[in-house]
Design a protein around this nucleic acid. Structure first.
Lengths: 155, 155
DNA sequence: CAGGCTGAGTTGGATTCTCCAACTCAGTTG
DNA sequence: CAACTGAGTTGGAGAATCCAACTCAGCCTG
């Protein structure tokens, strides 16, 4: 994924895609955020990803501040490394939820959703929605994007 | 992006990534959803993407049911093609909003956000949040994913 | 203390994808 | 009929991805 300097500069979507634009990065994050995986071998086994690609994705995610490389030691084992989510990493949960919700609706597998987002305490299903300032729910059609301070003036 | 049959099968994130896992696909969608672009030349000019890649991404997005290929004719011009969002395409707005919000917070450009999501009528800023069944807002930390009917039983 | 095991990677080589630049093609205008 | 414009193709170089096999460090067993 070569970088196009112009597009990457100011748009937060383009910048986010530097790290989220790769399939395996997102699947690693799925395992980390949704299933609590932290270890190289776990990711490898769950995803079936090639180890060199996994090495690269983990390193990128660490560099992006999404994962943190942390040594650990289990009884009777030597020290090893695990990858734990940072605050920025956990903050991607809504992104995964949004992708997941879209996929469930518009790319159904025929088996029903593989993951359901629920409230931790009650187990009741939750959904993602746009809210106005007072916490009222908005129809997505009534939400528009307007240029902000970082928008390019010329284009 | 070769397909790994196992991972792509049931997880809606993996399936969604078949089309959203490529950087230019998402940027095309950004232009379409946020700025209303529909034409090959517009995408090309805004994104600076190579035309063969753009051809490929548009075709994939059409095949995925996200864009629809539609002929149009402007006065004194021959018939041309434009790409308009389907319902499934518009439904990706929350995905872009989620990515955008994350990028603004955790990968700041130093220029402020390039796009701000607002309510169409009032121009008031909106945000994306998890809601429980009664429409009450939830802390993302209180949201967990549990296996659904499509989850693999063995793994 | 030799040998095996395990987790976390490297390395090599084939395949595929992405990028850029240049070119094509079809209808429209002058 | 020559030039223009939008929507693409085509060719070749470079990068990313894949798989398989290998490494490497420390712990445990015999």
């Amino acid at each position: 994924m070569r970088q196009n300097a112009e597009t990457a500069e100011r748009c937060s979507i383009a910048r986010s895609l530097e790290v989220l634009g790769q399939k395996w990065s997102v699947l690693v994050l799925r395992e980390a955020i949704l299933r609590g995986r932290t270890r190289f071998a776990e990711f490898r086994a769950e995803l079936g990803v090639a180890p060199d690609v996994l090495t690269d994705r983990l390193a990128r995610l660490v560099e992006a501040g999404i994962l943190e490389r942390r040594p650990y030691r289990e009884a009777g084992e030597r020290e090893r490394v695990e990858y734990v989510l940072t605050e920025a990493g956990w903050a991607l949960k809504p992104v995964l939820a949004a992708i997941s919700a879209w996929g469930d609706e518009y790319r159904p597998s025929g088996f029903g959703p593989a993951a359901i987002y629920t409230e931790r305490e009650t187990g009741a299903p939750v959904r993602l929605a746009f809210l106005d300032g007072e916490g009222g729910e908005l129809d997505p059609e009534d939400v528009v994007a307007v240029p902000g301070p970082g928008a390019t003036v010329t284009a």
